[in-house]
Design a protein around this nucleic acid. Structure first.
Lengths: 256, 256
DNA sequence: AAAATAGTGTCTTTAAGACAATATATT
DNA sequence: AATATATTGTCTTAAAGACACTATTTT
């Protein structure tokens, strides 16, 4: 080997190179359905995931996560955002990279290393799209049901990993806000947390979140211009205080 | 386009494909240096990172994170572990994937998407290696100093991201154990936390970690076969109780 | 005795945890 | 009046926070 160290001396094609670096996106949303018969009650919420039905080989006909190959001119995150926009028309939402999938033979098309993101999309943003083109090959599935399906590639594993990740983040960060309107009641927040984390239960939720020194500041009461507390009776006979998230980020620690 | 969906119909080489998918590893260790003049005192601990000096184009002569191209026959994590073994001789330690770096032009050799890992290595494991071959092109640097250097590629950014990540994980998980012997004193643990997180301070540390209901079980007192508490006076005149980590994983939440 | 680290006592304030009770508007 | 959700009262126990104090062994 020559000892001249410069570009002309370098050959990139000495080794086998990957056949593609796609971004796959686990798009989560929480749908609300009104309980019929009962008025002024909390809706039934469900965590859903968007899947698309593949048209061509490999895994033709099977459901898969939306995604696509990254281009040389963009970062992988940019390609994920581009895919999200193409698939849902939605832009500027919470999107987060969480893992890479590179098991040999995971894709019959070749050596394809997939980069997995999750996106959290408010249902109000998806509704517009749903009306516009109700394509039979793009659908929301209840997450538990999707996990029982035979998805294309290793997408069931990716979906499970994404679910574990957002369950962790739901309890340790303020991502709940992605599923809520700007202003919300405590019971809406509680319901959103429970929709993602079914085991979550907290007796004195309202007191803890509003009056514990160390975590007060995560949310705050909404007031009108006169300083009066704003309330809503959308879900209850008695109207409830409206809250919004602040930009306070609590720092968790096992040692303090 | 033909509507026959099968392998013979698929062409993987229609598009530009990446020129490589390397794994880069941020190898952290904490070194202990005895304070000279003073006996029986806590050592000076320092967070260090292993860098290698590049021999060839690009960035010849500059310091860089160890790493190497992934093969088609292994996962990216496997290639990271392989690289770690090659560079340090160390095997089976805590290694964790944390991000992908794909900014266009980040590597002059072509379209190269780098997968970044951090590894936490106990200094006792690195010492063996250091004696074996003290190569001038592989060195430990103080992390703060490394961040001031002009590293190859985008490795300064990767290093900074890795540092932020382990600072967060130091306080929310039990990774401190990677830097400690099996049995350690409370002040050693405290010092390790402070070495990674300089702002960490906790007045009543010993009481909190040992007698708070919600987090007791993270560490436990070491006892001999007769059930007597084991102590050490390595760092102090008065001997201190030895502790070890249990396998209890505390669940943190901003809502409870 | 001085040094160096380890650990306890004590007191105040804050929070957790459990449940019963009350509040408010709608049907 | 019954209903459905929202919110407060009350009491006990646990933990946080602050700081002074005591303990142990080596030099």
């Amino acid at each position: 080997m020559s000892s001249v160290d410069n570009e002309s001396n370098y050959s990139a094609s000495k080794y086998r190179t990957p056949d593609g670096a796609p971004a796959d996106i686990v798009i989560f949303t929480i749908t609300s359905t009104e309980r019929h018969g009962v008025k002024k009650s909390l809706p039934i919420r469900e965590l859903q995931v968007l899947l698309i039905q593949r048209k061509s080989w490999p895994f033709a006909g099977q459901w898969a996560l939306p995604g696509g190959f990254s281009h040389e001119t963009e970062t992988i995150e940019e390609s994920a955002r581009r895919e999200l926009k193409e698939e849902t028309g939605v832009d500027g939402v919470h999107i987060e990279y969480f893992n890479v999938y590179s098991t040999p033979q995971r894709d019959p098309r070749g050596w394809i290393i997939s980069h997995a993101f999750f996106a959290l999309v408010n249902e109000t943003l998806l509704e517009k799209r749903r009306a516009a083109d109700d394509a039979a090959d793009v659908r929301l599935f209840n997450v538990e049901e999707a996990l029982k399906m035979e998805l294309a590639f290793d997408h069931r594993i990716i979906l499970q990993d994404a679910l574990n990740k957002i369950r962790e983040k739901m309890l340790t960060t303020t991502i709940a806000k992605e599923f809520l309107p700007e202003q919300f009641t405590i019971s809406e927040l509680y319901q959103v947390i429970q929709t993602v984390c079914p085991d979550f239960e907290e007796q004195n939720f309202i007191r803890k979140i509003t009056s514990t020194q160390s975590r007060k500041g995560i949310i705050e009461e909404v007031k009108d211009d006169k300083g009066n507390a704003l309330q809503s009776n959308k879900y209850s006979q008695r109207s409830a205080q409206l809250y919004c998230f602040t930009d306070f980020i609590p720092q968790l620690s096992i040692y303090t």
